[in-house]
Amino acid sequence: MSPLLEVRDLRVEFPTRRGVLTALDGVSFSIAPGEVLGVVGESGAGKSMTGAAIIGLLEPPGRIAGGQILLNGKRIDNLRYDQMRRIRGREIGAIFQDPLTTLNPLYTVGDQLVETIQTHLGLDVAEARKRAVGWLEMVGIPAAAQRIDSYPHEFSGGMRQRVVIALALCAEPKLIVADEPTTALDVSIQAQVIALLKGLARDKGTSMMLVTHDMGVIAETADRVAVMYAGRIAEIGPVREVVKHPKHPYSAGLMASIPPLDRRVDHLAQIDGAMPRLSAIPRGCAFNPRCPEVFARCLVERPALLATGATEAACWLYDPVSEKHAPEAMRHG
């Protein structure tokens, strides 16, 4: 099946007075219809920026400097602002971390839903309103028919995020880009929202790009996952493989450093150091200063995504011509 979204060699730059910073460098992935792709990484890894580039909302002066983004085989990275606005909502829905950035405080929830439905689906007001109530019920707002005329500030944080989800879904887009949709919520509310998103995506056959730093959310929700580091994809593959048998030394370190809930360990695995700033990304593999497996080639040559079996990892350990190869444990997980 041809992919719904395809990102090819995406490069995003930020021109600053000290030179051009490369925030995303050679990012490629695709999302199949009905698939949920998780994108994880630590702050500054470029995961949110990937989402912003896809929905055409890069913050200036950021710009797409290379590569292509294709939706249903058509390029959307070079569209004008008004063309892109039509695609946002109708074809790509967006959910952000803070519901208040999406909802207009001056209009009722109903106004906003009805306007979106009318704009994108061309229905009359009565029909649009009926659908809006339907969506609010679907996302679990109690007494939706009454609450539809409330303003965003009259909802609690969890309920507001449900409204945002309704707003993102109401024009029935094929793809949803969700950027940290549960991060601002408490753990018990977070579980409700994840269950809701997962159910809706499944029932409607909607594809989703789920950007989060929370590995647990990814593990529960995603089909495949991309691990990002310093503006590049370090590893991408089926979520079970990446979580249980990570191949890239960075994803392996990341998984190991998550504190376990089921036991107490004396010393947590940690990755020393910190992710490099965009202005000081090392030559070769960006992870080389922190990598326990580093060897000569990593310092000079940047690895592309290489097949490792079930996943692809941007790591020279998996190139047959390298002078060093992944240890047994890592190869098989």
């Binding site: 018990s188 994840i194 647990g216 529960e220």
Partner: peptide
């Protein structure tokens, strides 16, 4: 119960 399950 609410904590996402990493063991899938």
């Amino acid at each position: 119960e609410a904590i996402p399950d990493l063991e899938m």
